[in-house]
Simulated scan of single mutants.
Amino acid sequence: MYRLIIEENKCIVEVSENLSVADLKRLHSKINKGIEIKKVNTITLDQSKMLWAIFRDLGDLIGYTKEELREILENDYCTEKKIEYFSLSPNKRNCASKDIATDFITWVIEWSLNQGYNLIIYEGKGANKQIRGAREIVPSIKRYVVACLKNKVCAVCGRREADLHHEPPLGIPYELDDGLQTGFIPLCREHHSARHNTSWEAFRSKWHIENIWLNPTMVEELKKIYPGHFKKFKKENYLGGSHEK
C-alpha cells in the first residue's frame, strides 16, 4: 500500500510497515527516476459518500447492511454493464470513474423504484440533519422521471399509483392522443392539482423536475401501464421511429 502525503514543501510516500527491504529499494529507485503527475477521472468523495448513504438507508429499509447491499447491487450493475468490479474509494487503484459513479447512482435509484421502494436519504446529524428524496439526489432527472413513469410513481414526492399528466396540457380528447403530441410526467393527486394551479415554469422550478417526450417504443410500453391513455396510438403506424422526439 502506497499513499502520497503533501506537507508544505515536502512529498511523503507512506508505505506498509510490512514492506520488505527489497520492495523498499525498488520503490526508492522508481521515485528517483521522477514522478509523473496525471489527472484521472475518478469517483469524487461526494459521490462515494452519497452511494454509501443510499446503501445505508436503503439497506435499513429492506433488511441488508450497507456493505451487503453495495455488493449485491454492484455485482448486478457490473454484470448488466459488462464492466469490471470497482471500488467506491477515490484512493483505490481500481476505483470507479466519475462517469461510472454518476451512472451507478442513477441506476441504484432506478432499481429502488423498480422494486417498489421510496428511497429517502438522511444526511448530517442533529440540528443539521436533512431528509432528501430520490428526486433531489439523482444525477439524471430525465432518467428518474422515465423510471417514475414506468412505475406509476409521483416524480415529485414518490407516492405510488400516480396519474399520467400531459405537459403541456393535451387540449384534445384522449381518443385522439397517440402519446407523441405532448410531454408527460407522473404526478400524485396532490401534485397534479398543484400543477394545474400554477404555471409549468413555476412548478418545474420549485420541484426541479422535467417532463418527458415519448418515442413510439416508450408509448407502446406505457400503454400497458396506463390503459386509459394513448388510444390513437397504433404500433404498426410508427415502425421505423419516424415520430421519435
Results as ranks from 00 to 15, higher is better:
C11L: 00
G171E: 08
Q47F: 03
G116A: 09
M1C: 05
E136W: 01
I120E: 15
E161F: 14
M218N: 06
R26P: 00
H229Q: 15
I6L: 00
K224H: 14
N237S: 07
P227W: 10
I54T: 03
L4W: 05
T42Q: 05
N237C: 07
K82M: 08
T217Y: 12
L19D: 09
W111T: 11
I5H: 01
K10S: 00
W111G: 00
V153Y: 06
K125L: 09
D178P: 11
L119I: 10
M50N: 07
V13E: 01
E190T: 15
M50E: 09
R132A: 11
I225G: 11
R93C: 02
S205K: 15
F230C: 11
K234E: 15
F104C: 02
I120M: 11
T182L: 09
Y174V: 11
R132L: 14
V21W: 13
S16L: 10
P227T: 13
M1D: 07
E210Y: 13
N211F: 15
L19M: 15
Y2V: 01
H28C: 07
S205C: 03
I31Q: 03
D76Q: 15
G183K: 13
E221R: 12
D103Q: 07
I62T: 09
E221D: 14
G34A: 01
W207S: 02
M1I: 04
T106S: 10
K206S: 13
D57I: 01
V156W: 01
M1Q: 05
Y117P: 01
K30D: 04
P227N: 09
E67R: 03
T65R: 03
E220S: 13
E123Y: 01
N91L: 07
D177E: 14
C154P: 06
Q181W: 12
I43Y: 03
S140Q: 04
S48Q: 04
H192C: 11
H165N: 13
C11F: 00
N114D: 12
G158F: 02
K150I: 04
R93T: 07
S193L: 14
I6Y: 00
S89G: 03
I131Y: 09
R3K: 07
G124D: 07
Y64T: 03
H229I: 04
C188S: 14
E175F: 05
E201D: 15
R3M: 05
P169I: 08
G63H: 04
K92D: 11
V13K: 01
R195T: 04
L164A: 12
I141W: 02
R56G: 01
E7C: 00
K142G: 08
L119M: 09
V15A: 10
I5K: 00
V156R: 06
G116W: 10
K223E: 09
W107I: 03
G124H: 04
E221Y: 12
V145P: 02
D99E: 13
N215V: 07
E210D: 14
K129T: 12
N211L: 06
L73A: 05
H191Y: 13
C11H: 00
K125I: 05
E7M: 00
K25R: 15
L61T: 14
I12N: 00
D103M: 01
C78F: 02
Q130T: 14
D177C: 15
P139R: 04
R70N: 11
Y122F: 12
Y122W: 08
W213C: 02
K25H: 08
K152W: 01
K39T: 05
R132Y: 08
P173T: 09
D178C: 13
